[in-house]
Design a binder for these strands. Structure first.
Lengths: 350, 350
DNA sequence: TTGTATGCGTTATCAT
DNA sequence: ATGATAACGCATACAA
């Protein structure tokens, strides 16, 4: 019952361990005869090579680690799925780790991955330390370890690691232009935490878009959330209470959008009439809302593909350029984003 | 730059490798003196133990594998999150694998996990082989390998492995009773694939619930989907075209529900008025629909906890009993499930 | 083409 | 308490 080793196979096949090893790892120097014997013996005994021993010897594990911020966020589970599929196609096993938007859990995962000697790392970095404004000690260790690493979705300011990120400038331009053309003057932004580079990029692209459309940014219309549903719910209330009375809002991710939409439904705010909403992340849930919510999204499958590709280049000794994926604005219907007329007249407020 | 080993630490600390190892792995027989020297040397050099080598020697990896059906299904990502958190608390690293509702990918993952000699397995089994009606060869290998294994969410008929499953009998009774009390006579069921034990359990509990409420089951009102959004969309159309003109429907998982709700919205079917809908899986997205969708859900966090607990019992040599988690019906509002009066009068049909 | 012997990094055994 | 050494399972340099 106990783990059958290559030695058992060799014995059963009547050859030496070396020959067995050569056959089993596809080494050319093997005779058809011993190949047959070893293969049948291995199959007979149900031999499974011990990956530990193999990679201890060969210093290759044929595995990579993927660190994401939140498994339960569809954005990241889509990304994880994409990375996994492409890595698998390249013969690499993917270990998926969950940082839970938490630097400590990030470091924990990185440590075990370092211990397991994965061949490469794809990381959605959690951001710099709040106080020191530096990467965490463990992150530094990773960076100086020489293990091929690339960032995806987010980047770390000042850290020279190739990153696959998204550029939402154009999409936000279109989104803001659309809202502006419908008379919206006060557009709120429910953003993400400042440690996430995506949150910064999205907000600053939003500011630029405002300027491009002759509108001006107003910090009072900026809610800093944490990418989670609960903060979206808070933001929903914040928006209703906002003295500036915004008539439209752009939300930086789907979980917050879902949290907010729930609250607005509960309070009877008619999204698409009383309030125009555009959200980041193209998730199916946005399509069951009536009217469907306009979105700014990325091709996560593409992002995953680019990430794996870039990682493989690093593993092969090349130095890939950072790449930006262009975000796409999808105005699903002219109803989702409504004309701002008598928007938010006191009636829907508490 | 290249991987610092325990030998380097021992040298730097001026002790033998044996002593260094004892200190680093918390062996009691160490003097405070050498403990101090080794620890500071290790820290100084940034020593990360090689997990491969360690477990090659100790035959323990302090890791478990979790195989789920679909990372992108919130049900499973919630489960994954829960398992991971509880395993982490027990000092176990979790490898998350994605079967993609596909037996081949399941086997693939199981093979690599077997190779990596994980200490235990938590599996959402993909079902028996269609033709042979037997577990796959790889699954049999897992089962005869002696590696502690438990099933979660689904079980495999005839396979003696402790399983943590859900029992939805009571919830479905309540759900059907609620619909019945609102005059619904024709209740459709959009179910899952027959290879999933959950699909069978849910449908048969539904049949029982019908009987308990004086209604009779009708195979013509049963749509066999595959738990994915696309099949939900197909089912939505199927329901509208169904000659029996069902006025209510119960959907076996959230992805299918989202696929269906989208189609109904596009076609102008007013869910909660024209059609009453209850779905499995308590996901946030159901709360943004107006009216919110009634759900039958499980405490996934609890399920994950029970799974890890059961697995640890097996690892400790005990034999845990299979457990059933009781599903919960949540009628979110009396509007979500509407009275069947002139439901589905021709108007909403194509 | 095959076998023998060595080493990967760590822990366990056995002395001391 | 410590050190020397064997052993874990496998891949490879070298010899034959």
């Amino acid at each position: 019952m106990n783990a059958v080793t290559i030695k058992d196979v060799a014995n059963a096949a009547g050859v030496s361990v070396a020959t067995a090893s050569r056959v089993l790892s596809g080494h050319p120097a093997t005779s058809p005869d011993s190949r047959a014997k070893v293969e049948s013996a291995a199959k007979e005994l149900g031999f499974m090579p011990n990956a530990q021993a193999r990679s201890l010897r060969s210093t290759k594990t044929d595995s990579i680690a993927l660190l994401i911020s939140d498994v339960r966020n569809p954005y990241f589970s889509d990304l994880a799925h994409a990375v996994e599929q492409h890595a698998r196609a390249a013969g690499l096993m993917t270990f998926i780790g969950n940082a839970n938007e938490d630097a400590a859990q990030q470091d924990d995962f990185l440590a075990t991955m370092l211990s397991r000697r994965v061949d490469g790392l794809v990381i959605v970095p959690q951001g710099l330390n709040e106080e020191s404004n530096q990467p965490s000690e463990m992150m530094n260790r990773v960076l100086s370890s020489g293990i091929p690493t690339i960032f995806v979705d987010r980047a770390l300011p000042g850290v020279q690691v190739p990153a696959i990120t998204a550029n939402s400038a154009q999409a936000l331009d279109e989104a803001v232009a659309t809202l502006h053309s419908l008379n919206h003057q006060k557009i709120a932004f429910i953003g993400g935490p400042k440690h996430a580079s995506t949150a910064l990029e999205r907000y600053s692209a939003f500011e630029t878009a405002l300027a491009n459309n002759g509108l001006h940014a107003d910090e009072a219309l900026h809610f800093v959330g944490d990418f989670q549903p609960a903060s979206g719910a808070l933001a929903a209330q914040w928006l209703l209470d906002n003295p500036a009375k915004p008539s439209a809002v752009i939300i930086a991710d789907a979980p917050m959008a879902i949290g907010a939409l729930r609250v607005w439904r509960e309070l009877g705010v008619r999204v698409g009439a009383d309030l125009s909403v555009i959200t980041f992340d193209e998730v199916d849930a946005m399509l069951i809302h009536d009217p469907p919510i306009a979105t700014i999204g990325h091709d996560l499958s593409q992002m995953g593909k680019m990430a794996v590709q870039a990682l493989r280049e690093v593993m092969a000794g090349q130095k890939p350029e950072p790449e930006e994926l262009i975000s796409k604005f999808t105005l699903r219907t002219s109803v989702a984003v409504a004309k701002a007329t008598q928007v938010m007249e006191g009636k829907v407020r508490p």
